[in-house]
Simulated assay, not measured.
Amino acid sequence: MYRGIDHIGITVPNIEEATAFFKEAFDAKVCYDVQRPEHEPMEGKDVEKQLGLPAGKSIIHMRLLRIGEGPTLELFQLGSPADNHPARISDLGIQHFALYVDDLKAASNRFEAAGGSLLSEPHPLAGVEDGPHNGGVYGLTPWGTLLEFITYPDGIDYPEGSEAERWTPSSN
């Protein structure tokens, strides 16, 4: 019945700047724009109801990007500033997404060169994800969205009774 995650939505302050960052940091590709800034904004009671948008807010730009093999990113730009700070691990709801990488150090360097900032040095994974070459690191985009880089070439030590193995992008 369910085939998998199709996309992840992210509200950004400026879609053109966010697109440039995702292209430079992750070689993202533009799929298409759903809503363009030169068109009438998506607004009004119907849009507010359909999207759970606060009264009076509008969406002026929506763009879909693709990074490697995985879900699409759907970027939203509002006609006025976003209401809150970017979500953190301590907030309820979706607060980050992770990119599987083959070379953690190279991915971290490219992310920082594009304007992102790492929260720490790359570190080993813990528990069932531990392995000599497994690792991860969290970072913030220029507008504050939390991302994670993860690699586990040594595999996962699945406990007995696991109902499924986690999805991992195939190597290119």
Rank of each mutant, 00 (worst) to 15 (best):
S162A: 11
G115C: 09
F22K: 08
G93Y: 10
R36P: 00
R66G: 14
F97W: 08
A114Y: 11
I156A: 00
L119Y: 07
A164N: 10
N84F: 14
E38P: 00
I60M: 12
Q35C: 02
L104D: 01
C31A: 14
A98C: 14
H39S: 07
A98V: 04
D33R: 02
V34R: 06
P124Q: 08
G161Q: 01
I156V: 13
E165Q: 06
V137F: 03
G135R: 08
G131S: 07
G4S: 07
P71M: 03
T168C: 01
I15N: 15
I15F: 09
L92A: 03
A98N: 01
P86F: 15
H61S: 04
A25Y: 11
D46Y: 03
L53V: 08
Q35Y: 08
L78E: 06
E129D: 13
P13C: 06
S108I: 09
M62S: 15
A126H: 05
A113E: 13
N172A: 06
I150E: 04
G56V: 14
E165I: 01
M62F: 08
E24S: 15
Y138D: 07
S80W: 00
E43K: 11
I15D: 12
A164H: 12
F21K: 12
N84H: 14
S108P: 03
E163H: 01
P169N: 09
L73N: 10
S117L: 03
E17D: 13
I156S: 00
A107S: 15
L125W: 02
N14G: 03
E148D: 07
G68H: 08
L147K: 00
T141K: 05
L140W: 01
T145R: 03
T72G: 02
P142L: 09
V47E: 02
G136S: 15
I89K: 09
E160H: 00
G116R: 03
K49E: 06
G70A: 13
T151C: 11
S80H: 03
F97E: 01
I10H: 05
D157L: 01
L118Q: 02
G79C: 14
D154T: 05
G161W: 06
P142A: 11
E163K: 04
F111R: 02
P142E: 11
N109M: 06
E17N: 12
C31N: 13
E48H: 05
R63D: 10
P159K: 07
M62E: 14
G155Q: 10
I89C: 06
E48Y: 02
A164F: 14
P86Q: 15
H133T: 13
P122T: 04
H39E: 09
S80M: 11
L78G: 04
T141Y: 06
D33H: 04
K23T: 14
V101A: 11
G131L: 08
L125G: 08
D102E: 15
E163S: 04
P124W: 10
D154H: 06
S90N: 07
L119F: 09
Q95V: 01
G93M: 06
